[in-house]
């Protein structure tokens, strides 16, 4: 469903490939640095509010009503949830001063969100003043998925989260795992040292120095909820999308996560913000540099990574279509 002008979506799109081939790497970089792309910009803030804001938050609410297990908070993570609320609302306000504000009045905070018609005065630690559990409230005000990790015993424990737009994982199952255990199923990243390095980096992350990285996969249709829970609903589409080749470039999306890694000062917990963006191949192909690079990345990607990312059935058709779009553009002198 095309709710938003394609050009706005594309101009903010965080194209994830720095090279013509892709491998896992500890690709962390300092956050809050705007990235100038061929067609626009992204990355100025750690919270991204766009034109899909209202629609995505409604979708999140529907998912949570149908399946409350998408929001999990182990008891000791309450402090981290309050921290996360302050951090996310504060950044949303800095990024959108015309419509949002967070001000402190003595012991209270006042959050004002004109986009949702929300006005709330609350006291840290007092759920009654917020009218909701703090992580759930944060998730109702920002589009990002949120995972909170507690640092203890030299490990990072994913002990709370609100994740409605997962790319093929289950927060409910993974809650309580360490960072290293969580990434157990990912091929290569342990043996090649990527995950151990990322782990050491996170253990030493300091407050007020946010970092970010990107991750990518592909989706069929603009379906945000691609969780393990609903796999029986979206899994068949991975094969089904091939049935009508005409629709392939409109249905197949490049799906990118911008992940922000933030140490929350009050609790010392680490917050992962995961912001998901998608563009269909047809739109992506309007950017010459992007269509050639993505085709090259898809062609070169090793089979184990293709399989892990769920691209098995359509890696070749997607690459072929991008190459045909390139050929067509050359032929017409575009």
């Amino acid at each position: 469903m095309n709710r938003v002008a394609a050009s706005d979506r594309l101009s903010r799109f965080p194209f994830p490939y720095p090279q013509d081939h892709y491998r896992y790497s500890t690709n962390v970089e300092p956050a809050r640095r705007p990235v100038i792309t061929e067609v626009g910009e992204w990355g100025r803030w750690t919270i991204d509010v766009d034109d899909e804001y209202e629609a995505e938050l409604r979708e999140r609410e529907e998912i949570l009503v149908a399946d409350p297990s998408r929001c999990v908070v182990l008891a000791h993570m309450r402090a981290a949830c309050w921290d996360s609320l302050l951090e996310c609302l504060g950044e949303a306000a800095r990024a959108n001063p015309a419509t949002m504000s967070l001000t402190r009045e003595g012991n209270s905070y006042v959050w004002s969100n004109a986009r949702l018609g929300e006005e709330r005065r609350f006291v840290i630690g007092d759920e009654d003043t917020l009218g909701a559990e703090p992580l759930a409230y944060t998730g109702s005000q920002v589009q990002e998925d949120i995972v909170l990790l507690d640092q203890r015993e030299g490990q990072l424990w994913a002990d709370a989260g609100l994740v409605t737009f997962a790319a093929d994982w289950s927060l409910r199952f993974d809650v309580g795992m360490t960072f290293l255990e969580l990434h157990g199923p990912v091929p290569r990243v342990h043996v090649e040292g990527v995950i151990p390095r990322a782990h050491r980096f996170l253990l030493r992350l300091e407050a007020h120095h946010p970092y970010r990285r990107t991750n990518w996969t592909m989706s069929v249709d603009r379906r945000l909820d691609q969780s393990t829970e609903t796999y029986p609903e979206w899994g068949p589409d991975r094969l089904g999308v091939l049935e009508n080749p005409e629709l392939l470039p409109d249905r197949l999306q490049l799906r990118v996560e911008v992940q922000h890694l933030i140490r929350l000062p009050g609790s010392g917990a680490i917050m992962f913000l995961i912001r998901t963006s998608m563009v269909p191949l047809r739109e992506l192909a309007t950017v010459p540099a992007w269509r050639t690079r993505m085709a090259a990345v898809l062609r070169e990607l090793p089979q184990d990574m293709v399989d892990y990312k769920g691209l098995t059935h359509f890696r070749d058709p997607a690459a072929a279509w991008l190459e045909s779009a390139q050929a067509a553009a050359i032929a017409t002198g575009a």
Binding site: F15, P18, E29, P30, R32, R33, P34, V35, I36, T37, E38, G43, R44, R94, H208
Partner: peptide, 15 residues
């Protein structure tokens, strides 16, 4: 793609 230098938060004492 170019990455602009980090923008310090306007009212941050870390500016």
């Amino acid at each position: 793609m170019t990455v602009a230098p980090a923008q310090p938060l306007a009212s941050s004492p870390l500016a």
